[in-house]
């Protein structure tokens, strides 16, 4: 064998395969080029429909213009929009409304979501059917949900008023959309109804991934139902809960359809969030420069929340 290998010509034949442009992407040397090639269409598309518009919007926010321009403004950059924004009571009102909505909707949705998830995580016949039904509102488009609730909340013939009257909780028919407080409650109701299913789905998935052995070990150690919930369920759910919460917060922060169709932001700005304000400024009053500056501020707040999400996600066990 060794003699055989010695008689072999010193320079072996080099085999190469030639693909597109003489480069075989299957060759180990060029494998990474394929990675770039596969990423390219999405990167270009994102560049065109996300990055470019986003830069335009940021540029726009530094110009006092009525309409969106496509060229990056060559002249007179101005901070006028931001100055106006920060001195506008309307803006601070929108911030306050957004934060209140965030707090109320997120906490109620979390309670409902957690409750329903724990309920359908029990062992019983028909459990998978109950699991399916309990998150069904997730599949109802927001506009449809809003219209349905408008009918339920109708002042004269709405079923909710009738029920509340019957129960003696209200003296007369409530006109849900005419006073700030009741309009805010109406928005809260619809948003919770649309928001809890996602939380429920996520928490249920989290619950299912907790190994049964943990609970058995805790039982052996003598922990009761509540101790098991506090010391096993909650810590094991923590990563899922964190991600879910932030996603829910971002949704409330940016949602447009529910509030816009339900109340249009009224009455007297009681339900006007940053998203509604941005849209109104841009498409009702055609102050697109000003609207963009609200959008940029919203984006910055969202970016802070997202950064938190990314950090949270990278720490997540799941």
């Amino acid at each position: 064998m060794s003699e055989f290998s010695q008689s072999r010509p010193a320079a072996p034949i080099v085999r190469r395969s030639h693909g597109l442009f003489g480069i075989d992407l299957a060759s180990p040397r060029h494998a990474n080029k394929l990675g770039y090639l596969l990423l390219a269409p999405a990167a270009l598309l994102i560049l065109a429909i996300l990055v470019y518009p986003m830069l335009l919007a940021i540029d726009l926010s530094f110009h006092d213009v009525k309409f969106a321009t496509l060229s990056f403004g060559a002249d007179d950059y101005t901070l006028k929009n931001y100055q106006r924004l920060f001195s506008s009571p309307e803006f601070w009102n929108a911030i306050r409304t957004t934060c209140m909505l965030l707090l109320v909707v997120t906490s109620i949705s979390l309670c409902v979501g957690m409750g329903t998830a724990l309920l359908v995580n029990q062992q019983f016949r028909g459990r998978s059917f109950a699991r399916m039904l309990i998150a069904l509102p997730w599949a109802v488009p927001e506009v449809v949900a809003v219209v349905t609730w408008v009918w339920i909340l109708d002042a004269s013939f709405g079923v909710l008023n009738w029920l509340l009257l019957k129960a003696g909780l209200i003296g007369g028919q409530v006109s849900w959309f005419s006073s700030p407080g009741s309009a805010f409650s109406a928005v809260t109701m619809v948003m919770v109804w649309k928001g809890y299913p996602f939380i429920s789905i996520m928490i249920l998935a989290g619950l299912q991934s907790i190994p049964e052995e943990f609970y058995q070990a805790a039982k052996v150690d003598g922990a009761n139902v509540f101790q098991r919930f506090i010391w096993i369920t909650v810590p094991c759910l923590a990563p899922v809960l964190g991600v879910t919460l932030v996603l829910t917060v971002l949704w409330v922060f940016r949602d447009f359809s529910i509030i816009y169709v339900l109340t249009g932001g009224g009455p007297v700005g009681a339900t006007e969030t940053l998203a509604i304000m941005t849209y109104e400024e841009a498409f009702s009053f055609f102050r697109m420069g000003y609207a963009s500056s609200i959008g940029v501020v919203t984006l910055l707040i969202c970016a802070v929340i997202s950064a938190f999400l990314v950090k949270k996600t990278s720490h997540a066990i799941y």
Binding site: R8, P9, P12, I13, V14, R15, R16, S17, D24, A26, S27, P28, R29
Partner: peptide, 11 residues
């Protein structure tokens, strides 16, 4: 006897 360093796995 063939230098396959640059060759695709399938070949």
């Amino acid at each position: 006897g063939e230098d396959v360093t640059e060759l695709a796995p399938g070949k």
